[in-house]
Design a protein around this nucleic acid. Structure first.
Lengths: 385, 385
DNA sequence: AACAGTTGGTTCGACATCGAACGAAGTATC
DNA sequence: GATACTTCGTTCGATGTCGAACCAACTGTT
């Protein structure tokens, strides 16, 4: 009776923050009567309750609505090749606890998922609450229809694997999977109140992927491969051999690995990109120069894409986005190289959600997935606190 | 009473071709009862009538529905810098008569629109029928909200001009304006039964623009500037000066003007790109080589965009798309340079609608615009044949 | 020629949403 | 503290869409 799409939207919104009926009506652009009717259903089903009143704004004060169920948790995971970030979030998409564990994708899906599942259980034991759903970011293309990882260049042995099914088997709750850059774009879009309807979120890690938001919705392309700019040709990299077998790819000059490598050839050894960032922060000129150059090259490659897509916002995530030289280099390249009409109003910024963007996007998808389960109201009402 | 959005969709569909109620229900994914109810309204309003029966398919034969009004015409115009194609189409988007006239955009909007309007009147005088609406393709960005041309690099004096208003004043019917590449994409998408949901349509003329279809809808970008790849940097053009003041732009090596220029430097003079095409068809090796190289460079520039956008189809329009060497060169570059997951299922073809693609897109927009006029039913019913 | 099978179209009750009108519960003003 | 004003929420009739059941009209088979 209350499993309609509107009910889901209302639950999501109320879970995020207490609101009054009239505020909901305005936010959602629906008639007050429609909201009231639905809220009645939800209250009858025991999912929502009135809790206190909003301050009057010159007239009758509104009654604040809260979600009855507050101990539900979604587990969200962001996978890299060597590490995974694991976190628990509530239904309002707020992250309550998180941790990082060492994994090795080369060990294959089963072993990796078991490590991740163990960490989820451990976080649950510490934090309490009931696990309702899981969302995971994969560093490679994901066919969300068939629900499998496809041809992930950095994850041999994972092709056609249904990671969601493995997680479901291990944790006993619904799970969803999507590409990391896609989820970062979704997370950043959702966590901004001022987000443009069309945006590109760049995730520069081992490879360089982007997530695309079109008209407020995630765009995944015709074969779930959209957003890949790793192998865009840049002149400055013409001599460099890429892992894909070609030369001149953006990855060979703007990825984390490339930066570490470039520093090594100038005699400076850094363990990983995090160390490089620390050096930049300490004012190391060599590190600074290499990072700026990486940003410049990324900006150059992005300029074609930005001219084509004409986004309102470009968000940068990944470790490098913490360095302001990097962000500034990307921005200045875009402003210099793109058409005036395209740069008019264009924002180029580090993601506000930082490295949690992917986790937030995963939480959103996991919650939506959960709320679309047919058995939802039962779960909520008979395990509610 | 029958001005709802469903009514518009039904009218459009019935105008395109006679159909039965049950076929409409299937096509539109609506309940048969919904269709019947709406058709009753439309018949009561005198907009639709039953005309004959469909052959039985093993059961009760359907009754074919036709639009009552068949002499209505929309005028569609595709503007270039020196020429404009003017045509009349019916409500089914079929072009009945067309012509080409010489214009000069440097004369400014008023004079140009007057020339165009005169040609529309002349076509109407020849063909008969009542003019209902006008659609025009502009070779530059168009802000469809404010309904003005913005910063058109090749049309000085047209900035912030409302061409639609000028046409309305001259012809006395509603008019709409949009960018030529956008409308070509829309037209090609609509005229294919097998079109992919996400596609890029390349219009290579003076500049090189693309129109983008996302999930079956035209995507225009955040500032109506999407699709511009004219100034994408290509290595082979590094030495060439572009009209934009930079070097290395795609336009300097892959546009029609660039091809004519390149042939001139090898001592071969062609008046325009049409002549070059004729030479290619005659097997002229120099012309062939230059056209193939243009296609190769376009393909190279497109590869970044295709990796990013992951379309199902790429359509080529504009004069050059008539040369199969050109299409083949673009296709082979895309297949070679894009990721396997992106090229899986990717089609790269000359537009089926050919150079009419823009006119068809303009007809679509003009018809939609017309059907969204509040006074529509009156117009239709009291002037119907 | 009767009858089963198939497809086309309508009727009717259910449901979601809307908008207008109204009652409820405050604040501001005199 | 009466009165106007503002905001919140509900009631109620109208509208659009759906799906199930039903009637209508044809084909093919026996």
């Amino acid at each position: 009776m209350s499993t309609g799409n509107l009910a889901v939207g209302l639950l999501r919104r109320i879970a995020a923050q207490s609101v009054t009926r009239s505020a909901l009506a305005k936010e959602m652009g629906l008639a007050p009567s429609t909201i009231s009717a639905k809220i009645n259903d939800l209250m009858a089903a025991g999912l929502v309750e009135e809790r206190g009143a909003a301050p009057s704004r010159g007239g009758r004060p509104g009654r604040l609505l809260s979600i009855t169920y507050r101990t539900g948790r979604v587990a969200v995971i962001s996978m890299g090749a060597k590490h995974a970030n694991v976190a628990l979030a509530d239904l309002a998409r707020t992250i309550h606890i998180d941790s990082s564990i060492a994994i090795d994708v080369a060990q294959g899906p089963e072993a990796t998922v078991e490590l991740i599942a163990a960490e989820v259980r451990s976080l649950l034991a510490r934090e309490g609450g009931e696990l309702l759903s899981v969302g995971i970011c994969i560093p490679g293309p994901v066919d969300i229809e068939r629900r499998v990882v496809i041809a992930p260049s950095r994850m041999p042995g994972w092709h056609n694997q249904d990671v969601g099914a493995l997680l479901e088997a291990a944790l006993g709750v619904p799970a969803i999977t999507d590409n990391d850059a896609n989820l970062a774009a979704l997370g950043e879009y959702l966590s901004r109140s001022d987000a443009a309807a069309n945006s590109i979120t760049v995730l520069a890690g081992t490879g360089i992927g982007t997530g695309i938001i079109v008209d407020g919705e995630l765009y995944r392309g015709s074969t779930y491969a959209s957003g890949d700019i790793t192998h865009t040709k840049v002149e400055a990299a013409a001599e460099r051999m890429c892992s894909c077998g070609n030369r001149g790819c953006l990855e060979t000059i703007a990825s984390g690995a490339a930066i570490v490598g470039d520093l090594a050839t100038s005699g400076i050894t850094a363990q990983d990109i995090i160390e490089v960032l620390a050096m930049v922060r300490d004012g190391d000129p060599a590190a600074n120069g290499v990072v700026r150059e990486a940003g410049r090259q990324l900006g150059l490659a992005l300029s074609t894409v930005v001219n084509f897509f004409n986004p309102g916002d470009v968000y940068l995530t990944g470790a490098l986005s913490g360095a302001s030289v990097y962000v500034a280099a990307v921005r200045s390249q875009l402003y210099e190289r793109c058409l005036p009409l395209v740069t008019a109003g264009l924002r180029v910024e580090a993601a506000q959600a930082g490295n949690d963007a992917g986790l937030l996007g995963a939480a959103e998808l996991a919650i939506l997935h959960l709320l679309n389960q047919p058995s939802l109201p039962a779960r909520f009402s008979d395990s509610g606190n």
